[in-house]
Amino acid sequence: MSDISNTHNAHTDDGRIAHAHDPSYGINIMIWLILISLTVITVAVAGIDLGNFTLFVAMLVAAVKSTFVINYFMHIKFDDAIFKIFLILVILVLFVVFVLTGFDVFYR
Protein backbone atom coordinates (compact mmCIF):
# COMPACT_ATOMS: atom_id res chain seq x y z
CA MET A 1 0.00 0.00 0.00
CA SER A 2 2.76 2.40 0.91
CA ASP A 3 4.53 1.35 -2.28
CA ILE A 4 1.57 2.37 -4.38
CA SER A 5 1.28 5.80 -2.78
CA ASN A 6 5.03 6.20 -3.13
CA THR A 7 4.90 5.43 -6.84
CA HIS A 8 2.00 7.81 -7.21
CA ASN A 9 3.96 10.47 -5.40
CA ALA A 10 6.94 9.99 -7.66
CA HIS A 11 4.71 10.32 -10.67
CA THR A 12 3.17 13.63 -9.63
CA ASP A 13 6.39 14.65 -7.89
CA ASP A 14 4.53 16.66 -5.25
CA GLY A 15 3.19 18.99 -7.93
CA ARG A 16 6.67 20.19 -8.91
CA ILE A 17 6.36 18.94 -12.48
CA ALA A 18 3.95 20.96 -14.58
CA HIS A 19 1.21 19.17 -16.49
CA ALA A 20 -0.80 20.85 -19.22
CA HIS A 21 -4.49 21.34 -18.46
CA ASP A 22 -6.49 20.85 -21.62
CA PRO A 23 -4.49 23.28 -23.82
CA SER A 24 -6.66 24.83 -26.52
CA TYR A 25 -5.96 26.90 -29.65
CA GLY A 26 -9.48 28.32 -29.99
CA ILE A 27 -9.69 30.49 -26.87
CA ASN A 28 -6.35 32.17 -27.67
CA ILE A 29 -7.44 32.97 -31.23
CA MET A 30 -10.62 34.53 -29.78
CA ILE A 31 -8.53 36.68 -27.41
CA TRP A 32 -6.33 37.76 -30.32
CA LEU A 33 -9.40 38.84 -32.33
CA ILE A 34 -10.62 40.92 -29.35
CA LEU A 35 -7.18 42.55 -28.96
CA ILE A 36 -6.97 43.43 -32.67
CA SER A 37 -10.52 44.83 -32.61
CA LEU A 38 -9.71 47.00 -29.57
CA THR A 39 -6.57 48.30 -31.34
CA VAL A 40 -8.53 49.19 -34.50
CA ILE A 41 -11.21 50.94 -32.40
CA THR A 42 -8.57 52.92 -30.44
CA VAL A 43 -6.88 54.12 -33.63
CA ALA A 44 -10.25 54.94 -35.25
CA VAL A 45 -11.46 57.09 -32.33
CA ALA A 46 -8.04 58.71 -31.79
CA GLY A 47 -9.05 61.57 -34.10
CA ILE A 48 -12.05 62.46 -31.93
CA ASP A 49 -11.18 65.08 -29.34
CA LEU A 50 -12.61 64.03 -26.00
CA GLY A 51 -10.81 66.82 -24.17
CA ASN A 52 -9.53 65.72 -20.81
CA PHE A 53 -11.01 62.28 -21.30
CA THR A 54 -8.78 61.42 -24.29
CA LEU A 55 -5.94 60.21 -22.07
CA PHE A 56 -8.35 58.47 -19.72
CA VAL A 57 -10.11 56.57 -22.54
CA ALA A 58 -6.78 55.58 -24.14
CA MET A 59 -5.46 54.22 -20.83
CA LEU A 60 -8.76 52.45 -20.12
CA VAL A 61 -8.60 50.59 -23.45
CA ALA A 62 -4.92 49.74 -22.81
CA ALA A 63 -5.85 48.41 -19.36
CA VAL A 64 -8.62 46.23 -20.84
CA LYS A 65 -6.20 44.85 -23.45
CA SER A 66 -3.62 44.14 -20.73
CA THR A 67 -6.21 42.25 -18.70
CA PHE A 68 -6.82 39.92 -21.63
CA VAL A 69 -3.09 39.42 -22.28
CA ILE A 70 -2.28 38.74 -18.60
CA ASN A 71 -5.25 36.45 -17.94
CA TYR A 72 -5.19 34.33 -21.08
CA PHE A 73 -1.86 34.65 -22.92
CA MET A 74 0.10 34.77 -19.66
CA HIS A 75 -2.22 32.19 -18.16
CA ILE A 76 -2.70 33.96 -14.80
CA LYS A 77 -6.42 33.13 -14.78
CA PHE A 78 -5.54 29.44 -14.54
CA ASP A 79 -2.57 29.77 -12.17
CA ASP A 80 -2.43 29.37 -8.39
CA ALA A 81 -3.75 32.11 -6.14
CA ILE A 82 -0.24 33.10 -5.02
CA PHE A 83 0.60 34.31 -8.57
CA LYS A 84 -2.56 36.43 -8.61
CA ILE A 85 -1.83 37.87 -5.17
CA PHE A 86 1.73 38.81 -6.16
CA LEU A 87 0.54 40.42 -9.39
CA ILE A 88 -2.17 42.44 -7.62
CA LEU A 89 0.38 43.60 -5.02
CA VAL A 90 2.78 44.79 -7.74
CA ILE A 91 0.02 46.63 -9.61
CA LEU A 92 -1.05 48.18 -6.30
CA VAL A 93 2.51 49.37 -5.59
CA LEU A 94 2.71 50.93 -9.06
CA PHE A 95 -0.70 52.54 -8.55
CA VAL A 96 0.28 54.04 -5.17
CA VAL A 97 3.52 55.48 -6.60
CA PHE A 98 1.57 56.95 -9.54
CA VAL A 99 -1.02 58.53 -7.23
CA LEU A 100 1.58 59.97 -4.84
CA THR A 101 3.62 61.40 -7.74
CA GLY A 102 0.33 62.63 -9.21
CA PHE A 103 -0.43 64.65 -6.05
CA ASP A 104 2.89 66.39 -6.50
CA VAL A 105 2.65 67.18 -10.22
CA PHE A 106 -1.06 67.99 -10.40
CA TYR A 107 -1.18 70.35 -7.38
CA ARG A 108 2.11 72.13 -7.87
Binding site: Y25, N28, W32, L35, F73
Partner: peptide, 13 residues
Protein backbone atom coordinates in the same frame (compact mmCIF):
# COMPACT_ATOMS: atom_id res chain seq x y z
CA UNK B 1 3.29 42.32 -31.62
CA UNK B 2 -0.25 41.22 -30.74
CA UNK B 3 -0.11 38.58 -33.47
CA UNK B 4 3.33 37.43 -32.32
CA UNK B 5 1.89 37.01 -28.83
CA UNK B 6 -0.78 34.74 -30.32
CA UNK B 7 1.75 32.64 -32.27
CA UNK B 8 3.82 32.36 -29.05
CA UNK B 9 0.84 30.91 -27.21
CA UNK B 10 0.08 28.60 -30.14
CA UNK B 11 3.68 27.31 -29.97
CA UNK B 12 3.24 26.47 -26.27
CA UNK B 13 -0.17 24.84 -26.82
Amino acid sequence: LLTSSLTMVLSIV
